[in-house]
């Protein structure tokens, strides 16, 4: 269903009436409760603006309206033997394409198949002036104008309402296998970092509770030699990737406070009590972080009733000044609540 006209009208009306808007898809993301603290905020739901607009598998691109459920997108591409490389989280099975773009979240294959930033090729957007704008397109290579499509990724609704987006897809591997081994976090860290420097068909690593799981993808001809190469061949739990991706793994229920650590590539991290994924570049700890290196980014999620509130470290002052100016360039009257209150 196409409700673009209504959404454009709502933004324009709110701008004139000086009311603020919080953009919402399925409302599945943790930080939703934060918006409740601000009064006079209207909710703009993209839920009804849903549907796949164009999908030609040989182009490796799918274009859909922002309210399209991620599950519907994933099913559509799977039916053609393809996958969404950024494999976005679906909390409680929910989540929309627009929500995935606005929150910039990527799944377990992120270091190998790329992030959602990497996959987005074009967006259609309503800016704060109520204008309907198109940036990028549906082709891989496109350098006409500033790369607004990728700037919108992760902007948490602060630049505008995504109406539709084109994202890159990839052929699904002919075969996939999860293998695992018992080891300490320190040993897992060393092995995973060593594999990163070699051309191996790895598309996921996850260390939790003393077990390192590795996902191998490719033709069968590639997987068997890789198992020999990494010296791991015990069969693992293939369900772990989806469980970790959607935060449904029991680890995420262990504490009312969960912290996500984004670690610089190559940094050592060997906390035996953590869940460590992405080839050692993303870790989750139950509770508050203790002491962290300066170059580690930590984001804390606190259970709050049915949802979660989050706290993030402040952005560097100079960068924040320019981010604010960029927001103003898209939304001069401050119509969108965006992430500021999150």
């Amino acid at each position: 269903m196409d409700s673009a006209e209504e959404l454009v009208a709502m933004v324009a009306d709110c701008r004139v009436a000086e009311r603020r808007i919080a953009i919402m898809g399925h409302g599945s993301k943790p930080r939703r409760v934060a918006w409740g603290h601000e009064t006079g905020v209207e909710e703009l739901s993209t839920r009804a603006h849903s549907g796949i607009l164009e999908y030609r598998p040989e182009e490796l691109v799918i274009t859909a309206q922002s309210g399209t459920p991620l599950a519907e997108l994933a099913d559509a591409v799977a039916a053609q033997g393809q996958l969404l490389p950024f494999d976005p989280p679906r909390f409680g099975g929910e989540g929309t394409l627009g929500g995935a773009i606005a929150s910039g979240l990527s799944g377990p294959a992120r270091p190998w198949r790329g992030s959602i930033h990497d996959a987005v090729l074009g967006v259609e957007l309503i800016n704060g002036l109520g204008e309907r704008l198109r940036f990028g397109g549906s082709v891989m290579k496109n350098v006409a104008g500033y790369d607004v499509s990728r700037l919108v990724v992760g902007s948490l609704g602060s630049l505008g309402v995504v109406l539709s987006a084109s994202v890159r897809v990839l052929p699904a591997p002919a075969a996939e296998e999860t293998v695992c081994t018992r080891c300490s976090a320190s040993e897992a860290d060393v092995r995973v970092r060593c594999w990163a420097r070699r051309p191996l068909p790895i598309t996921g690593t996850c260390y939790v509770d003393g077990t390192l799981s590795i996902r191998l993808s490719g033709g069968p001809a590639a997987i068997e030699p890789a198992k020999v190469d990494i010296a791991v061949d015990e069969s693992g739990d293939a369900g772990i990737w989806e469980a970790v991706r959607d935060r449904a793994h029991p680890f995420f229920g262990r504490n009312d406070v969960i912290t996500r650590l984004s670690l610089p590539r190559g940094a050592r991290f060997d906390d035996d009590d953590a869940l460590i994924e992405w080839g050692g570049t993303q870790a989750w700890i139950a509770g508050e972080p203790r002491s962290l290196a300066a170059n580690v980014y930590a984001e804390t999620f606190r259970r709050d009733g049915d949802g979660w509130t989050t706290s993030r470290p402040p952005v560097d002052g100079t960068v924040a000044k320019y981010v604010e100016r960029v927001r103003h360039a898209f939304d001069p009257d401050g119509v969108f609540v965006g992430a500021g209150s999150g």
Partner: peptide
């Protein structure tokens, strides 16, 4: 070095 930070990048 590849740290994933939320917000406008």
């Amino acid at each position: 070095k590849g740290v994933d930070v939320l917000g406008v990048d």
